[in-house]
């Protein structure tokens, strides 16, 4: 029997595996810099800042999916929301572990004091717990179990998490607030867009 060419599968979606591969680039860059000894004299601080930056960046990308999807009328963008969300969770986890393992090295007394005394730490911690819950309930199965309405309501908390995340960054920096303010401005636009749509819908 001769091999018949397989009918090509029609791709209507974006292959999220490509997105996952791309999302590894910052991480690979970080490892590369580590091996080249380019993480400054204080590598732990560098890793912490780096992974925190990329967490916020992917979080804003996640929130950008829905506006972009309507703006460009591209429904195929839709699944990217979950992909970017999970990438955010991965970077947030590395960021959290940097604090727990590299920075504090399981010094539980210091960790407890850090959580109770330092607003930016507990704000970041709450945001991370929120991301954990959203990541755990990100599967299709979870959506079925929870029911669509409840699931959506629950995942709306990503807006609050984003506000906490940017606040965490803002109060951490000493005086050069340019970067956190930029993140804040983008977040403001992304949330403002949704608020605007909502007001528009209510008026109709």
């Amino acid at each position: 029997m001769r091999d018949t060419p397989r009918p090509q599968r029609l791709r209507v979606g974006i292959d999220t595996r490509i997105i996952w591969l791309v999302s590894l680039i910052p991480l690979i860059t970080l490892c590369g810099r580590g091996m080249m000894g380019e993480l400054t004299a204080n590598p732990i601080e560098y890793i912490s800042k780096f992974t925190g930056w990329w967490t916020l960046f992917s979080l804003l990308l996640t929130l950008g999916v829905t506006p972009a999807r309507y703006f460009f009328s591209m429904p195929i963008l839709f699944p990217l929301r979950r992909t970017f969300g999970l990438i955010t969770f991965v970077y947030a986890t590395i960021h959290f572990l940097t604090w727990l393992v590299l920075d504090q090295f399981f010094d539980w007394t210091e960790i407890a004091l850090d959580l109770s005394e330092r607003p930016f730490i507990y704000i970041g911690f709450v945001a991370f717990l929120g991301l954990c819950i959203l990541a755990l309930t990100s599967t299709n199965r979870a959506k079925v179990v929870l029911g669509s309405v409840r699931w959506r309501r629950m995942h709306k908390s990503v807006y609050l998490i984003a506000i906490l995340g940017v606040t965490h960054f803002y109060i951490l920096v000493k005086s050069d607030v340019w970067e956190p303010l930029t993140f804040g401005a983008v977040l403001f636009l992304l949330l403002g867009y949704r608020l605007f749509l909502r007001l528009l819908n209510n008026r109709r």
Partner: peptide
Amino acid sequence: VSHPRWSQRKERRIGEFLK
């Protein structure tokens, strides 16, 4: 005297891992 952003109880000596 604690600082809102850094614990002043400990420090990391540059070049060392544990505080």
